[in-house]
Design a binder for these strands. Sequence first.
DNA 1: GGCGGACTTTGCGCTGGCGCAAACTGCCTG
DNA 2: CAGGCAGTTTGCGCCAGCGCAAAGTCCGCC
Lengths: 241, 241
Amino acid sequence: MTDNAPRKTLPRLDESLLTHMPPFSRLERRQIREILDQASSRRYDAGVAVFDEGAPAERFFMLLDGYIRVVRVTATGEQVIALHIPAGQLFGIARALGRDTYPATAVTAAESIALSWPMRLWDEFVRQYDGFATETYKTVGQRIGEMNTRIVEMATQQVEQRVANALLRLINQTGRKVPEGIEIDFPITRQDLSELTGTTLHTVSRLLSGWEKQGLVKSGRKRIVVCDAHRLVVISGAQLP
Amino acid sequence: MTDNAPRKTLPRLDESLLTHMPPFSRLERRQIREILDQASSRRYDAGVAVFDEGAPAERFFMLLDGYIRVVRVTATGEQVIALHIPAGQLFGIARALGRDTYPATAVTAAESIALSWPMRLWDEFVRQYDGFATETYKTVGQRIGEMNTRIVEMATQQVEQRVANALLRLINQTGRKVPEGIEIDFPITRQDLSELTGTTLHTVSRLLSGWEKQGLVKSGRKRIVVCDAHRLVVISGAQLP
DNA sequence: GGCGGACTTTGCGCTGGCGCAAACTGCCTG
DNA sequence: CAGGCAGTTTGCGCCAGCGCAAAGTCCGCC
C-alpha cells in the first residue's frame, strides 16, 4: 500500500473509497483498482459549477464527499433546483440518458470531492463491471421518481405543504442528527428553498419564522434544523392510514 | 409470408410494424421476427388503464397506434398527468429504471394498440439486440428532459404561460395538420389540460375562450386546434433571440 | 475593529386564479 | 326523439401568496 505510483492530482486513491458505493459494490478489489487508476480526483469549493447545462458531456462523476445541487436556469434568468445529490452517487451521467450534453448544471452545495472519468469509459464500465449498469439505472429511476413527485406536489399542493415536503425530503436524504433534532447537512438559504419549491424567499422566510415560533424548526443563517418532523409531516398533507 | 403459425390474439404480425421504430430499426428482419413471435398484441379502448401505479411490472410495451397518458394520483385523489406517449415508443419499461413495480398508471388517451412482452425478456433484448438499449435510454432521457421542463415551468411561470406551453408541446408531439391549423390528435378535455398544467378546468376554459376570441385556437368538445402557434409562443413567454 | 455585503425578517397592498354555483350544449343511449 | 350525462362556459367573491420596500442581523474581510 505504499504510494510509489505518481498521481496527477492526489496520492494514490484507496480502494476502500469505492467498495461500499452501490455501483461498485459487487466488484473485486482488482477491478476497483483498475477503475481508480483511470479516475481523476478533485476538490471543489462550495458554490462552484462542476459542469454547465448544455456543455458537451465529456466526463462522468462520482461524488465522494459533499453535496451537489442540480440546477436549471430559465430564459429569464430564474433558477430552479431540480434535485440534490448526496455523496456516494454518480452524477453527470448524460450517457445513461442517451445524451451527449449535460441536461442541467451541477453546483456544489458545500465543499465537495468527486472522482471523474472520461465519458468514453462509460460503455466499457457498463460492459465490464457486473452490476454497474443495474445500479446506475436504479439511481436514474430514483431521480425520475423524485422529479415526478415534485411535479405532483407543485401541481396539487399549497406553498406551505410544498415547503414542508421539501424540508422532509432534505432531512431524509441529507439529514444529520444534532441535539435539537435533524439538521440539513449543508448550507441552505431561504432563497435555495424557494428555488426548490417554486416560491419566493419572502414566503419561505415567513413560513420558517412561523414554524420556529411553534418549535417545529430552528434556523439560522444558511442552517436549518428540524425539531419535530412528525408535525411537519402533518403540515405536508401526507395521508395517515 | 403465409399465416400458418397459430397466434393467440391476432393474425401473425408483420415485420414492417417494427422496422421503423427506433429501438428496433437497426435489427435484421430475422431478429424482428423473433421479437414479434414472442409478443402479445392487444387493442385497448380509449380511457382504460394498461397498467396501474405500484403494480408488479410484469410486462413492457410498445405502442403501435394511439396515445398513452401517464398519470399519477395523489393521496387526496387528484390526478396529475405526467406526460403523453405517442405511437412508436416503448412504455412500462420499469426495468430500465431498476424498478420492479410501475411508477405511474398508463391510461389510453384514445383507442390504442400495443405489443407487450414479459419483463424477463428485457435483459435478453438489451443483451442481444444492437441499439435497443441505446435507443431506450434516449427515450428515458427525453422523458426526463420533459419532466424537468415541466418542473421549471411550474416553478416559474404563470398559469397562462403554462397552458400555452402545454398546448405547444402537445401539438409538437402529437399534432396533426388540419385546414384550420394543427389539431391535437386525440380527445382532450379542459380537465385533462388542467391536470397537465396544475390548475383548474375553469381557468383553462376561460383561457381557451379568450384565445378563441382572438383567433389563436378553435376548440370543441374534447378537441383543440391551434391556429396561430406563433402568437401562442409569444404568450408562452419563450425568449426570442 | 469596523466596513460592506450577504442573508433574513417584516409590513403592506394588490391581484391572479381558485372555489362555488348555475346554466348551457352537444353527444350518446335507449 | 327524448332524456340524461359528460363536457363546457361564465359570473362572482375571496384570499394565499407575490411584489415591493425598508430595516435588521450576522459574517468575513481588510
